[in-house]
Computed example of a mutant assay.
Amino acid sequence: MRKPTSVRPNRRQVFLAGAVVAASTVAATESASAGGFGSGNLAPWTGLTKAISTPATIERTRQNNGIFMFGDSLGVQDGKALAQRLLSALNLPLAVNNWSGRPTKETVDALAQWKADYGLTRRILMASGTNDIFTPSVFAAQVDRAMSIAGTSRTVFWVNTQVARTTMSAAVQLADQRNSAWINLQLADAQRRHPNLRIVHWAEWLAAKPSRLGTYLRQGIHTSVPYGQDARNELIVQAIKAG
């Protein structure tokens, strides 16, 4: 398949999306049946599928200047293929801490725990935000917290978010998209505060052609296999290659 090209966000569009978010938050809050921000409520996730590397793999990755990845269900599904792609393209090993349904606060908790237990590699991949559509207002603080844990000497690559669950009502899909835009706006703003933060522009790449949403996503959230998986993983690899 053709390699996906990086798509930089249009700042005007991003900030307009933020304005829409701010204007619509009050209306969304009134929709109790759909949760405080219109997307519903986060379901219990601690019993869901996870993929966490063994201590031996973590240590080997750290010693060989590889990459630590922290993510959610997209990482659970796509992490093995990403590890193979990184090793083949850049000769970089990958250790993963991916957990389905996990929001960013607990993902950053895992980052902190690995730092305490193993130390960190100089490149960190954060693939979290999908499960923050239910409470998007807390996301920015967690990005800042992750950057503080990583420190200024490490590069943090962060995959942004695209959610509009096609199994849900039109109103909830609209809320999902609005909340995704809000999350991505916060991430874009965080990049201005943290020079060592790099954004992997998954949402912009999908939005560049309307047909991509149906081809590269399943039910408006997870990557299709192999097309969406390959496209998202290639964007990650290219971002890491660019540094």
Rank of each mutant, 00 (worst) to 15 (best):
Phe134Gly: 04
Asn98Glu: 04
Gln142Ser: 09
Leu235Gly: 06
Ser24Thr: 15
Leu174Lys: 11
Ser73His: 01
Val96Ile: 10
Asn65Gly: 09
Trp99Tyr: 09
Leu16Met: 14
Val138Arg: 14
Ile67Phe: 04
Asn160Ser: 01
Thr167Val: 11
His194Cys: 04
Gln177Phe: 13
Thr61Ile: 06
Val96Glu: 03
Gln113Cys: 04
Val21Cys: 15
Asp230Leu: 12
Asp144Tyr: 01
Gln162Pro: 12
Thr155Trp: 13
Gln113Met: 13
Val26Arg: 14
Arg122Val: 07
Gly129Val: 06
Ser128Gly: 03
Gly66Ser: 00
Ala181Val: 06
Asn65Lys: 15
Asn64Glu: 12
Gly47Pro: 01
Ala127Ile: 02
Ile133Trp: 08
Lys50Gly: 07
Trp45Gln: 06
His222Ala: 08
Asn233Lys: 03
Arg60Met: 13
Asn131Ala: 01
Val14His: 07
Leu125Met: 03
Ile58Pro: 01
Val200Ser: 01
Leu82Lys: 02
Gly66Asn: 02
Arg232Pro: 07
Arg2Gly: 13
Gly220Glu: 04
Glu59His: 09
Leu48Glu: 13
Thr135Phe: 07
Arg2Gln: 15
Ala17Asp: 12
Thr5Pro: 06
His222Tyr: 09
Arg11Phe: 11
Ala207Asn: 10
Gly129Leu: 02
Val237Glu: 02
Gly243Lys: 09
Lys241Cys: 07
Pro226Ala: 08
Gln77Pro: 07
Leu120Ile: 03
Gly214Trp: 12
Ala112Thr: 03
Ala17Gly: 14
Thr49Met: 07
Ser148Gly: 08
Gln177Lys: 14
Asn97Arg: 08
Ala164His: 09
